[in-house]
Computed example of a mutant assay.
Amino acid sequence: MPSKAFVEIKDLVLNTQIGTYATGAVVPDRHLLDLILAIDPQLVMIANDVMTSVFDYDPLVLQIDQLAQDGHYETQERLMTRIVEACAKYPQIQSVTMTLRKTPVRQGSGVLGIRLEVDTQTLDQMRSKI
Rank of each mutant, 00 (worst) to 15 (best):
I9W: 09
I9M: 02
K10H: 03
D11V: 04
L12N: 00
V13E: 15
T16H: 03
T16E: 07
Q17H: 14
G19T: 04
G19N: 01
T20Q: 10
T20V: 13
T20N: 11
T20S: 14
T20A: 14
A22K: 09
A22Q: 11
T23C: 00
V26M: 00
V26L: 07
V27P: 06
P28V: 05
P28N: 01
R30A: 08
R30W: 03
H31I: 13
L32K: 06
D34S: 04
L35R: 05
L35I: 02
L37T: 06
A38G: 07
A38E: 15
A38I: 02
I39L: 03
I39K: 05
D40Q: 01
P41K: 00
L43P: 01
M45F: 03
M45P: 00
I46G: 03
N48D: 08
D49V: 02
M51W: 01
T52F: 08
T52Q: 06
S53W: 06
V54N: 04
Y57S: 02
D58C: 02
D58W: 00
P59C: 08
P59D: 09
L60E: 06
L60S: 04
V61I: 14
I64N: 00
L67T: 11
L67Q: 10
Q69G: 15
D70W: 12
D70G: 13
D70Y: 10
D70N: 15
D70E: 14
G71D: 12
G71E: 12
G71R: 12
H72Q: 13
E74N: 12
Q76M: 14
Q76K: 05
Q76A: 14
E77A: 00
E77L: 00
R78I: 08
L79G: 04
L79Y: 05
M80C: 09
I83S: 04
V84R: 01
A86W: 05
C87K: 04
C87V: 05
A88G: 11
K89R: 15
K89W: 00
K89Y: 10
Y90C: 11
Y90F: 13
S95N: 05
T97W: 05
T99R: 15
L100P: 05
R101V: 05
K102H: 01
K102N: 09
K102R: 08
T103L: 12
P104M: 06
P104R: 03
V105F: 09
R106S: 14
R106F: 10
Q107N: 15
G108R: 09
G108E: 10
G108A: 11
G108Y: 09
S109N: 10
V111T: 14
L112I: 12
L112E: 12
G113D: 06
I114F: 08
I114N: 11
L116V: 15
V118H: 01
T120N: 14
Q121A: 15
L123H: 13
